[in-house]
Nucleic acid binder design. Sequence first.
DNA 1: GTTATGACTTCAC
DNA 2: CGTGAAGCCATAA
Length: 117
Amino acid sequence: MPPKRKLIHTARPRGDNAVAAICAVVRRIPEGWVATYGQVAAMAGLPGGARLVGHVLQDLSPATDIPWHRVVNANGGVSYSPSRHGGDALQRRLLEKEGVEFDDKDRFNLERFRWPE
DNA sequence: GTTATGACTTCAC
DNA sequence: CGTGAAGCCATAA
């Protein structure tokens, strides 16, 4: 057994560890439900890591089995950005296919579709 | 090392 | 209900 490491004063996993934690959480989101970036971050043990969640999702392979489209922002809507190259529109389409209803402001009832855990 | 940017959030106005 | 500022963390230049 290697000598004990000098110091690990962080209870918050970083790096690959964080990526794995985030993926594990997102994978648990049931079909027809959604979770916010902040919610996913908190569940992964990364309070305040909402932006990190976004970066992780952007790095995912296009053929990933992770339901990335069920991760939305705190306004109850899809986060639109030019850097997504249309992936944002795809996200909305996938959500609608799973039963999430958008209003004319491109938002849905977060209280109703938010993953309860 | 610093600065700028981004699939974010929250609070003040 | 919209806007702006500050906080947050990783990445790119």
